[in-house]
Design a binder for these strands. Structure first.
Lengths: 183, 183
DNA sequence: ATCAGCATGTAAGGCGTTACATGATTCA
DNA sequence: TGAATCATGTAACGCCTTACATGCTGAT
C-alpha cells in the first residue's frame, strides 16, 4: 500500500552528502552502491519530480547554455528530516534473490557437472566483484579521517568484502563435496 | 524483453521432485527457499495457468468432492526439459537488496547511536534466520543418503548458514569500530 | 567530423504484491 | 459452532526496467 519507494531514500541520502543532477545520481548508484542496490533513469527522474513537488528537494540555479538545461538538486530541511525519520524506523527489508541458489536447489534435475559448472560461474562473478570492492576499500582507507561519511562508506564496503569471501569459501567446500560424494 | 519470470522455474523445479497443488507450492516456497526466493498466490496461480497452456505442466485427476476442486499439477516431459535448459544457461541474476546497508551507507546523516541500533536490529534478524536454517540442516543431515535431491537442499542451506555467520562476525567487528572511533 | 559521454525525460510493459472474494474441511 | 487451515482465483495497483526520443559538449 503505497509510498514504499526506496529509490527516494537513495536519492535523498546521496543529496545529503552533495548536490547532484539526476545523471550524477545514476552514476553514484552504479559506482558505489550497486552491489546492494540498483536504480535506472526511468525510476530516478520521476522520483526527482515527485520529491520536488513534495518539497523534499529543490533546484539550484541551472546552467542555461542551451535548449537542454542541467538541473542540480539540493536537499531541503524537510528532505533531511525525511532521511532521519527513515533511518530511525526499525523496519528494514533485506532481500536476497539468488538465481544461483535456485539452480543449486534444483540441481538434482541434471547431472552434477552442470551444478559444478554453475558454481564455478558464480565464483568467477564473485571474484570480479571482490576485486572492485577491494579497490574501493583501499581508496577509502586513505581518506577515512577526512569526513565522517567516509567511515560509513568504508563499513559498507567491508560488508561486501566479508560476505563475498564467505561465498568463495563455501564454493570451495561445496565443489569438494560434489566431486567426492558417490552418485 | 519478456519471459524472464523466474517464478516459472521455481514451480517447475518443485514439481520435478513431486506433484503439488498451487497451495502446496506456496508452502514449499515459504518453508524451504524463502531465504533466497519468494512467491505469492498472486504470482503462483497465474503462472500455473500459463504453463499449463504451454504444456509444461498438466493436471492430475482432481478430488471432486465439492464446488471447489483441488488441482494437483504434474510436470510434463516438456516441463522437465525447460528446467534442464534453464540449468544449463550460463546467465544467473544474483541480486542483493539490503535496506540495512542503505541505512549504513547514509548513516552520517544521523548520530552513531542510530546506526548502532540498526546494526543490532539486523543482527537479531539474522540470528533468528540462522536458528531456522540450523534446524533445517540438522534434519537434512539425517536423510542425506535417502535421495540425491537432499544433497542439493543441504548445500543450499549451508550457503545460508555460512553467509549469515559471516554477517554476524561483520556486525561484531563493525559495532566495535563504531564504539571506539573518535567523532 | 565523429564519437563517447553528458543530460533529461517519456512510453510500454513486465513482474509482483496486497487485498479481496469465496467456500470447504478439520479439529477442538 | 467457531476458528484455523485448506484451496483457488481475481482486481487494483505499485514499482521498476528497457527502449526510445532528443540534443549538447568535449576530446581526438
Amino acid at each position: 500500500m503505497g509510498k514504499d519507494r526506496k529509490i527516494d531514500m537513495v536519492i535523498l541520502g546521496l543529496l545529503a552528502h552533495e548536490d547532484l543532477t539526476g545523471y550524477d545520481i545514476k552514476k553514484h548508484i552504479d559506482n558505489s552502491i550497486s552491489f546492494f542496490w540498483k536504480g535506472s533513469f526511468g525510476s530516478i527522474y520521476p522520483a526527482l519530480s515527485d520529491m520536488e513537488k513534495q518539497g523534499l528537494i529543490k533546484r539550484k540555479k541551472s546552467r542555461n547554455t542551451g535548449a537542454r538545461e542541467k538541473i542540480v538538486y539540493q536537499l531541503t530541511n524537510e528532505g533531511r528530516d525525511a532521511v532521519k525519520e527513515w533511518l530511525n524506523q526499525e523496519s528494514a527489508s533485506n532481500e536476497l534473490k539468488y538465481e544461483t541458489l535456485l539452480k543449486l536447489y534444483f540441481g538434482g534435475v541434471e547431472d552434477r557437472s552442470v551444478t559444478l559448472r554453475n558454481i564455478e560461474l558464480f565464483e568467477e562473478q564473485i571474484r570480479d566483484n571482490l576485486t572492485v570492492l577491494n579497490m574501493y576499500k583501499d581508496n577509502l582507507e586513505k581518506v577515512l579521517d577526512d569526513e565522517e561519511d567516509h567511515l560509513y562508506y568504508y563499513l559498507t564496503v567491508t560488508f561486501g568484502i566479508d560476505t563475498y569471501e564467505a561465498y568463495l569459501k563455501w564454493c570451495e567446500k561445496t565443489k569438494r563435496i560434489l566431486k567426492k560424494r558417490n552418485y
